[in-house]
Amino acid sequence: MSPINWGDVPTWVGGGGAIAAGWFAYQTIKSQRQQIGEQRVFIAEQSRFMDDQKQNLELERGELRAQAQERRISQARQVLMTFETAGESGRDAYNSPTGYSRWDVLILNGSNEPVHDVMVRFGVTYNAVSATEREGRRHPDEGRRVVPVTLIPAGHTVVFESPNWSEPTVDNNRPTLLFTDDGGVRWRRDSYGKLEEIPADGPS
């Protein structure tokens, strides 16, 4: 039997230790990479979750804003305006027109709440000269109201009259309705039915 070459044992042991150290380092790096990968997956999932939550919140806020706007405009939509011309026609001895014409504008508050500070304007300059509440015609005041009308109750109708003009002047001064809803918002409805909110700091 030949003697053991002890000179190779330390080398072998050192090599084994290096292998063990390398294996441990590899396992450590592998574990760290796995942890980093898991963290990245977790962060990605959290980011997706937060994005979903953000989108849901934005949708909810948008829906709430739409509902609030619908509530804001719902009463104003039920305040309606119709109009027609009225007057007298005739000619004098020189065959010149002696008649007059005017707008009769009917404002119906079809909502369940009153409207306030109601005015009908003609063109950009002229205001209604009189107003009569139909539901008040049997009262001692015969339904006459001061212009602008302070309040039109729910379901009531008021007829506004323009000044008396010639027919061309009437045609050039179509009516516009101005009113404040029960929530304090000021509105404008033109003779074509367009309804728009008047900014608080804007002209009425």
Rank of each mutant, 00 (worst) to 15 (best):
P163I: 15
T132F: 01
D141Y: 06
S31R: 11
Q69Y: 08
A76G: 09
A68N: 06
L80M: 15
F42H: 06
V13M: 07
A93D: 10
Y100S: 14
P3Y: 15
M81V: 09
G22D: 09
S111Y: 10
S89M: 11
E60A: 13
V124R: 02
I107E: 03
D117C: 10
D92H: 05
R121A: 15
R144G: 07
G62K: 13
E45M: 04
V9T: 13
I152P: 00
G193Q: 07
E197T: 04
A200M: 08
M50G: 01
D182N: 06
W6T: 12
E196C: 05
E70I: 11
W187K: 00
D190G: 01
V149E: 03
R186W: 04
V9P: 05
I19A: 14
V105A: 04
Q46N: 09
R174A: 04
P168T: 15
A131G: 05
T150Q: 04
R48L: 14
G16V: 12
F160L: 10
I29Y: 07
G17F: 08
E197V: 05
I36S: 05
T169D: 11
I73A: 07
V13P: 02
V13S: 09
Q34G: 08
G15Y: 07
L59Y: 06
D201V: 06
E196W: 01
F42C: 04
R71P: 01
G136Y: 03
G37C: 02
A66V: 03
G90V: 10
G193F: 07
G99M: 07
D190K: 00
E113V: 11
S74N: 13
R65E: 15
A20T: 09
S47F: 02
D117R: 11
V159S: 03
V159A: 03
T150C: 02
S130I: 03
V185D: 04
T85Y: 02
E60S: 14
R145N: 06
W23E: 12
G143M: 08
G62P: 06
A25V: 12
N109S: 04
Y126K: 10
G62F: 10
F83N: 04
T28D: 12
A131I: 12
W187A: 01
R72E: 15
D52S: 15
E38W: 04
D190Q: 02
S89C: 10
N172L: 09
G202C: 12
G17S: 12
